[in-house]
Design a protein around this nucleic acid. Structure first.
Length: 414
DNA sequence: TGTCAAATAT
DNA sequence: TATATTTGAC
């Protein structure tokens, strides 16, 4: 700079642009550092700069904002501050801002807050909260594909992550999901052993699922879905899917002797196991919680198929492929806005009955793709008069209980 | 890098 | 309260 040195520039920036300035130099001589500070530098970093120091620098903006808030005695800039602050600090910060009464400079609360800010935040600046990963069906599918590709024996978070090719996903995210996934498989195995040792019909899931909807969940369910019509079944006509089963437990090396099973039954009945029965639709298979405890009745919805016979896939309690309308992803709440319904549908004509739970509109055209096929269709309801009563828990299962969910057997249908 | 379990968030 | 996800220790 021909006209000024760094210190002069520092003054200019500080005065004219009102920005916090950090000086950098290889020269750490005290006199020089002091001079920088005297000219208004808020920090002085010695080269080479370490990452830790770099991560600190936003604090200067934060601090500046804090002072602005104090100076103006108003909430200007609050939003930025709120965004920047550590979430865990929220209570004390809110206390500071909204405690009412004593907000004068130098009040104890403010001092406490500033103390905290200086002592803690500067030391712990990396505590900005991570966004939580929501394991959507789609994401889980990728996960499962990766796991299958690698093989359960050799699987690890890093390998899965690489294969999934989701840029924002971290190894830790995958590790966490893998952990949950393994727990799920273990649980499956346990349930399986229990079932097979306790009775002659290992394929019949215990009819206790509806009981798992407790009184409190019933109340919640009422609140959430009481106004929705939920006809019961969608029937696929003219369909003859090829069903090929893969027992994931074999993949998981948890059990190798179990005979193959057919996916069948009614997954979406009240309180029964349901693949999307998670707060975020990503649990592997759990009992329908609260608002998802609906279903039942015996009216039918027809599901007319236009093109190819559909093929379906159920992966680890997740439906993939047919049933999920193209532009209609699983909604953030499982609550279907009218007139969307959340029925089950089945392949009644096929000996291997099965049901899925798409959100489908009457007359809605859909298209969906699974591993091998793309297919299209249109939804028709046979009977629109069916009104779901959320308080009624004694719906008859429209078919033999033998056909009950085998979804929690963790089958693939490819 | 993987796993586990505690902590935390939803 | 239950469950999902993150975090940190090992």
């Amino acid at each position: 700079m021909p006209d000024m040195d760094g210190f002069k520039l520092l003054e200019h920036v500080g005065l004219e642009m009102d920005l916090p300035v950090i000086m950098m130099s290889v020269d750490g001589e005290t006199r020089r550092v002091m001079r920088g500070v005297q000219h208004g530098a808020c920090d002085y970093l010695l080269k080479p700069i370490r990452m830790k120091e770099l991560r600190n620098i936003w604090q200067h903006v934060y601090r500046k904002k804090i002072h602005e808030v104090r100076d103006t005695e108003c909430h200007e800039g609050l939003e930025e501050i709120l965004m920047m602050r550590n979430v865990s600090e929220q209570q004390s910060y809110d206390g500071y801002l909204y405690c009412g009464g004593d907000m004068t400079p130098g009040s104890k609360k403010r001092k406490d807050f500033e103390h905290k800010y200086e002592e803690k935040d500067f030391a712990d600046h990396s505590s900005v909260k991570k966004a939580r990963v929501v394991w959507t069906v789609d994401l889980h599918q990728k996960f499962v594909k990766a796991v299958n590709l690698i093989g359960f024996e050799k699987v690890g978070p890093k390998k899965i992550l690489d294969l999934m090719n989701v840029p924002w996903l971290t190894r830790e995210n995958v590790a966490s999901h893998l952990q949950k996934y393994r727990l799920y498989l273990t649980r499956l195995q346990k349930d399986d052993l229990k079932t097979s040792s306790s009775g002659p019909k290992p394929d019949i899931p215990p009819r206790d699922a509806p009981d798992k909807c407790t009184e409190s969940t019933k109340v919640q369910q009422n609140e959430v879905v009481s106004s929705h019509r939920t006809p019961n079944n969608l029937i696929i006509q003219n369909s003859s899917p090829t069903i090929h089963e893969v027992d994931i437990k074999r993949n998981a090396s948890l059990q190798t002797t179990k005979p193959k099973k057919i996916l069948t039954g009614y997954a979406a009945k009240t309180g029964m196991s349901h693949p999307f029965a998670s707060t975020q639709y990503s649990s592997f298979n759990s009992v329908l919680p609260t608002q998802y405890c609906w279903g039942g009745g015996s009216k039918e919805i027809q599901f007319k198929q236009e093109n190819n016979p559909p093929q379906f896939q159920v992966q680890d309690g997740f439906f993939t492929g047919l049933g999920l309308p193209a532009q209609q992803n699983i909604m953030p709440s499982f609550q279907p806005p009218d007139p969307v319904i959340s029925p089950s549908w089945s392949l009644k004509d096929h000996p291997n009955n099965m049901e899925l739970s798409p959100f489908l509109l009457q007359g809605q055209h859909f298209s969906s793709t699974n591993v091998d096929h793309e297919y299209k269709g249109v939804v028709e309801y046979n009977d629109q008069e069916f009104l779901y009563d959320p308080l009624r828990y004694d719906y008859e299962y429209p078919t033999d209980p033998l056909e009950f969910s085998v979804i929690d057997q963790g089958l693939f249908i490819v």
